[in-house]
Deep mutational scan, measured.
Amino acid sequence: KLLSSIEQACDICRLKKLKCSKEKPKCAKCLKNNWECRYSPKTKRSPLTRAHLTEVESRLERLE
């Protein structure tokens, strides 16, 4: 599967780190437990900047 097509777990399953069936409108866990089942939009991760990478590398060197 391509990364862009990976389905996201519902908010509660993601928060509780449960295996989500990803069914809509309610996944199996939410249906069974009568929880409100919501699927928040995916958040875009910002790409690493060179400055951040350099900072992490220098912190790693100090720890070694």
Rank of each mutant, 00 (worst) to 15 (best):
K1W: 03
K1P: 15
K1A: 15
K1H: 13
K1D: 09
K1Y: 12
K1I: 06
L2M: 15
L2E: 15
L2Y: 14
L2W: 14
S4N: 08
S4D: 14
S4R: 05
S5E: 12
I6Q: 12
I6E: 10
E7G: 08
E7H: 07
E7Q: 08
Q8S: 11
Q8V: 05
Q8N: 09
A9H: 06
A9F: 01
A9D: 01
A9W: 02
C10M: 07
C10R: 09
D11M: 03
D11L: 05
I12P: 11
I12V: 11
I12W: 15
C13V: 07
C13T: 02
R14K: 09
R14Y: 07
L15F: 11
L15Y: 15
L15V: 10
K16W: 04
K16H: 04
K16S: 02
K16P: 02
K17F: 00
K17M: 00
K17S: 04
K17N: 07
L18K: 04
L18E: 02
K19M: 01
C20H: 00
C20T: 05
S21P: 04
S21K: 01
S21I: 02
S21G: 05
S21H: 04
K22W: 03
K22N: 06
K22Q: 09
E23L: 09
E23D: 13
E23Y: 00
K24T: 15
K24A: 15
P25H: 01
P25F: 01
K26N: 15
K26G: 15
K26I: 14
K26M: 14
K26T: 11
C27E: 03
C27W: 02
A28D: 10
A28Y: 12
A28Q: 14
A28K: 14
K29E: 00
K29P: 06
K29I: 08
K29D: 07
C30L: 01
C30A: 05
L31T: 11
L31E: 13
L31S: 12
L31Y: 15
L31Q: 12
K32A: 11
K32W: 07
K32P: 01
N33T: 08
N34F: 15
N34M: 14
N34T: 14
N34E: 14
N34G: 12
W35G: 13
W35V: 14
W35C: 07
W35R: 13
W35H: 13
E36C: 14
E36W: 04
E36S: 14
C37Y: 09
C37H: 02
C37L: 00
R38L: 15
Y39V: 09
Y39G: 04
Y39T: 06
Y39I: 02
Y39K: 02
S40N: 03
S40H: 00
S40P: 03
S40G: 07
P41T: 04
P41E: 07
P41M: 08
P41H: 06
P41L: 04
P41K: 06
K42P: 15
K42F: 14
T43D: 09
T43Y: 03
T43K: 04
T43A: 12
K44C: 10
K44E: 04
K44Q: 15
K44F: 08
R45Y: 02
R45T: 05
R45W: 01
S46H: 03
S46M: 07
S46R: 02
P47G: 06
P47D: 11
P47V: 06
P47E: 07
L48M: 07
L48K: 07
L48P: 05
L48F: 06
T49F: 04
T49I: 05
T49R: 00
T49E: 00
T49A: 01
T49W: 06
R50W: 04
A51S: 08
A51C: 10
H52N: 07
H52Q: 08
L53V: 14
L53F: 01
L53Y: 00
T54R: 03
T54K: 03
E55Q: 11
E55M: 13
E55S: 11
V56C: 14
V56A: 01
V56Y: 08
E57D: 08
E57F: 08
E57T: 04
E57C: 06
S58M: 13
S58D: 12
S58Q: 14
R59C: 04
R59F: 02
R59M: 07
R59G: 06
L60R: 00
L60K: 10
L60V: 14
L60P: 04
L60N: 04
E61R: 11
E61V: 15
E61S: 11
R62I: 15
R62G: 08
L63P: 03
L63R: 08
L63C: 08
E64L: 08
E64G: 05
